[in-house]
Design a binder for these strands. Structure first.
Lengths: 345, 345
DNA sequence: GCGGTTTACGCAATCGATTGCGCAGTTGTC
DNA sequence: GACAACTGCGCAATCGATTGCGTAAACCGC
């Protein structure tokens, strides 16, 4: 490729008054014509629109945003409180984001992705105030519960992906994590497993609910939870693998694993395999999410499916209803157990 | 959750003149103080900054953008010319996007995701003119070559993810697709395979180069390409699966597959399996990308690794150099063969 | 203590589109 | 033919921050 010459911006960008001059009208008329304002007669409108197209004119969004105090943009904000790398390494987030983006752009809004590496109590307030977007979707309820409550007190177009928590005033949308945890664990118990590990970052509200479901299922079967079987593990990195390896090294006996994500489940299975155990023959494993990995891995993962497209659609639906001034309740979407090889029926 | 009362925006948002009044200075001074302008003495600066923080003041970005004609935003634009669903269903795109987002936000820029469902010759020009972003990254060179050339003629901060094509004036960054195709096919040939399918959407420039590499390798081994072995297949959907199934149904003999993506490879392997063939015993398969799926699937995929973090870093680096007024050449990044089970050494 | 320099900050224009209000010209009504 | 209503469009204010230029006060050296 030829190295292009660096040249100054070719002249001045064409603006509305230019079109106005050419059309022999005022810029007010051009503005109204381009906005399909009904007070401008059809004929004038089409003439001006044609002229604008011909000259490659496009409304300057910065100017319009300022004047109208709205941006036709929805921000998807990710507070990276607990896991710095969440965004790039978490396939679940990326999938959700993809669907959110689809829903939003179908409504002719732009999508602004905002990462907040060091959220404090007011990051959301600042974000809202900066007027970069008309509404906000927060992915990563995690440790932001208070900041979210604070912001939701006087800002309405805000929807959070996450669970419904006790003292919550913001609107959240998420899966039925409790039921997911219960389903997964119940399935393991029904298939005869008795000593079941829980693997996951229980400090996150959504995961904690999965853990609650796990406890519930165990209780329902007349058993009691062995707290040493509840192990922390991160979505990424080797923590799940290491935890399982250490357990096996200490000859702790268990016959099932409920992992808080498919990634954690696979990581655990790899640890089992390298210790000579087999899944599902020796140990059954149930994951969470039903990501692409779940169906393609070996063994294929039994897992709890989250309805990602449904979640995205609901979030965006709530958000736009709020943009219209409506109030919306939080929503919890159903999950389902997907049976595959790693924990057969 | 309690349904919150819909209340009007609490008063008026605090603006710069408010801070100015409180501080007893002019808004010019506040502006300069907040921008850490050196003509404002340290003491005044910190006072004003403290005041702003205390009152929760944040600069209105729309106003700033208009005045400065810059947005501190990079747009990632995806023309959905050929595959409508590309964004949400393509894990490769999402992974690349994640890394791009990281690189961009590290430079304290925001990320605007723009989907263009129906690109025409001028969509990029319109996008650029709308002044929504300071620079653009285009993902999906696909059928946009001419539109890209057109836009690059007088707009510089523009970098394209894709291959270097003959009459190209825009700056592109991508993997060495030709070498990837050659490596993959050469590996199959060296392991004794002779009748190798190519599966992929060769209408895309990057894929076409992989096909060129495939042809080259076959030629290098003194064989000639059987054009009936070059089969179209989409990244998503059942086309790869169906193509392989039909071939097997017609009893066409082949012993290797080079697939243009890991997803296509897996889809092909599933088709082999349902026809009672085994991979790699009967047929070796090589994929492309080295996605998460490749290492977790069964059989684990031999594949060509694209350096996604490297690509993202290079794209963003080029873009910011261009923002500074520098010219940059197109870049091609190396790929490597990752040996796994589906096509053992 | 005086001319000259520096410091600290304000005035007012500016970015480009939108929009409330009003005016001129036309049409309609009796 | 007089008056009202309506149509089509322009004037000028506005959105909120930034910034070139100017000026008053402070400071400096001799």
């Amino acid at each position: 490729m030829e190295l292009e010459k660096v040249r100054p911006k070719s002249g001045r960008a064409v603006k509305m008054t230019d079109i106005a001059r050419i059309a022999g009208v005022s810029s007010s008329t051009v503005s109204r014509a381009l906005a399909d304002h009904p007070t401008i007669p059809e004929a004038t409108r089409t003439t001006i629109q044609a002229l604008a197209r011909e000259h490659g004119y496009v409304v300057n969004r910065a100017a319009r945003n300022l004047r109208q105090s709205q941006t036709q943009t929805i921000a998807v904000a990710v507070p990276l409180g607990h896991e710095r790398e969440q965004l790039i390494s978490d396939p679940f987030f990326l999938r959700l984001f993809g669907h959110l983006a689809d829903e939003i752009s179908q409504r002719r809004y732009d999508i602004l992705l905002v990462r907040e590496p060091s959220p404090d109590a007011h990051w959301l307030g600042r974000l809202v105030q900066s007027q970069r977007a008309d509404g906000f979707i927060i992915v990563g309820q995690s440790d932001q519960h208070q900041a979210l409550n604070l912001a939701a007190r006087d800002y309405r177009p805000l929807v959070v992906f996450g669970s419904e928590l006790p003292d919550q005033i913001y609107c959240s949308v998420g899966s039925d994590n409790f039921e997911g945890g219960r389903l997964a664990t119940d399935h393991l118990l029904r298939s005869g497993r008795r000593r079941i590990l829980f693997l996951g970052p229980a400090e996150l509200p959504q995961i904690d609910l999965r853990l609650d479901g796990y406890r519930q299922a165990i209780g329902d079967h007349g058993l009691s939870v062995d707290e040493s079987f509840v192990l922390p593990a991160h979505f990424t990195g080797p923590s799940a693998h290491d935890a399982v390896r250490d357990l096996l090294a200490r000859a702790v006996e268990f016959d099932g694993i409920f992992a808080a994500s498919d990634g954690i489940a696979l990581s655990a299975i790899r640890a089992l395999e390298s210790a000579g155990m087999r899944c599902p023959d020796d140990i059954s494993v149930v994951g969470f999410d039903d990501s692409d990995l779940a169906s393609q891995s070996h063994p294929a993962l039994t897992t709890i499916r989250q309805d990602v497209p449904g979640i995205a659609a609901t979030i965006v639906d709530h958000l736009f209803r709020r943009l219209e001034g409506e109030g919306t309740y939080s929503s919890t979407l159903p999950v389902s157990l997907i049976l595959r090889e790693s924990a057969p029926g």
